[in-house]
Design a protein around this nucleic acid. Sequence first.
DNA 1: CTGAAAGCGCTTACAG
DNA 2: CTGAAAGCGCTTACAG
Lengths: 330, 330
Amino acid sequence: MPKTIYDIAKAANVSIATVSRVFNSSNTVKEATKKRVLRIADEMGYHPQAYAQRLASRRKNSIMMLVPVMSNHFFTEILKGTQDILVDLNIELTIQNINQELGVFRQVEQILKRQWADGYLLVSLHLSEQELKKLKRFNVPLSLLDDVSPTFDSVGFDNVAGGYKATTYLLEKGYRDIAFLSGKVSSKPVKERLQGYKKALMEHQIPFSDERIFLGDTMDRDGFTEKSGYQAMLKILSNYPVPDAVFCSSDIKAIGALKAIKDLNVKLPMVSYDNLSISEYTGLSTIHQPMYEMGYHATKHLIERINNPEAPICDHVHDPELIIRSSSEI
Amino acid sequence: MPKTIYDIAKAANVSIATVSRVFNSSNTVKEATKKRVLRIADEMGYHPQAYAQRLASRRKNSIMMLVPVMSNHFFTEILKGTQDILVDLNIELTIQNINQELGVFRQVEQILKRQWADGYLLVSLHLSEQELKKLKRFNVPLSLLDDVSPTFDSVGFDNVAGGYKATTYLLEKGYRDIAFLSGKVSSKPVKERLQGYKKALMEHQIPFSDERIFLGDTMDRDGFTEKSGYQAMLKILSNYPVPDAVFCSSDIKAIGALKAIKDLNVKLPMVSYDNLSISEYTGLSTIHQPMYEMGYHATKHLIERINNPEAPICDHVHDPELIIRSSSEI
DNA sequence: CTGAAAGCGCTTACAG
DNA sequence: CTGAAAGCGCTTACAG
């Protein structure tokens, strides 16, 4: 049987209040008593139960991160930024995986209701503005990461600008027939990147055509997989006329696409999106997103919001940066 | 202010016991009452608080996964296996990140003491046998993943066999001077893979030499990074004589190594380890580990252990499988 | 089918 | 510096 505060109190010959004070590092406890209690607690393997503690204190000292883990590297970087803030403040972080197939909004709502944490970090969840407004009623600090919204604090990317930058680069190199290697079309970032692509075309007086959007057949993880990129590139290369450059919606897809290009032994310049750490080693020209900084800022905003619920809402939009490596230089 | 069970009880004109029963889907509540309570609760945005609920019921219905998130793809696959079991059983999963720089054992101990969950899944933590024994005293269900131990249920890989298989393949192709591209030498999987490498050499009467072990300079994430692989391969290629084949301790390192090979425009056959999903698209010959299955089995064992603490300890060791692609075929 | 009441393991004014 | 006691928001025999 696990030990309780009563067991420790009895063994140390003090009241439970004293034991509690020791564990909450109150400095009103005599040094000798403190030491004794700590020793006995250690011997008996005791530590206050998280649940009881949080119920009684009504403080949670914890924030929760909701993520669709699909985003691998992306997520790891964000996590580093988050942890760098939290460690100093001694705030606990719990990660909850959101299953994209099971109704994202309902899962979020369920979690908020249960009052696990002092605040929540919603990563890449892309809820609609309407859904976000509904979450307001829980009246709980909440920060969006990889998203922008007037409803909550948010730290996002300008995906439109990213798509625009990537496409413009290819246009300025003289390519006219640029394909868009898309992810799942309903995905918010994909839509925005496409929008930037269109804008760039328009500025160069190149008509946009639906037929220049290519998709893989596999659509798990919003189509952000190597396989899906491979399939789409196969389609691009079997098209007539073959486009003379490609803007690819993600690095992971680009890795798959690169293989198709290699397998068919052709050349096709490509710029993609994300700048994962493998991208540097596979020579991808790509749009970089400062993920660490995002994690850092979003977490910071959340903490500030917890401490001051009435502060004006703030949103950060990080500018995308184009990084040129070999994939775009034929 | 968040609503409590009292608010709902009052609004619905029932006792708090009835409200509680509704949320615990007891079937002793009259259908009409149930509906009314549910409607009112929904209107008021009420749901039982996790903390209070778990304290009162002494059931947690939740398991916790402890991971050093360093392992990207690896982890994602495992998570899928875990979730596929948990969803059906309606058990909650909490993910806790373990910081490898902050004393793994102490963090684990701390978490176990706080009694968050009914059981814990320790992923790739590689605690020593001695440390594991110390955890016994918490008397809590615990399953190891990517580890083997007689002390707890475990699902691991035979890293020695994997290293042996990879090296033997290269030996049988006729290569005699095979380098080992290592990760951090203190890492348990690295040690074991090295052991398999040595065993294979010995069987072919090839003397082992420390000078054939190459390391990168960057050692974050136990040296499992592209950068570290790149650095190490640069060393290999500047060595005289240049080895005629390489066994690389991880796919991520191999991606970096591949770039070095390409940059210097040489050829060097290589087999690596992990079979990440990018490996298929970058042509890595590698050792495959069935990660999904592992997640699945480890979770299953944990649930069984929770239901039957006295069952005999069981451990699964998954056999590694060699997958040949282009990187080893010059 | 429903309610009154004890209890889960803590924290924290309050009093000394 | 320490203790007695109320309370955090729930669940669950027990009784009806």
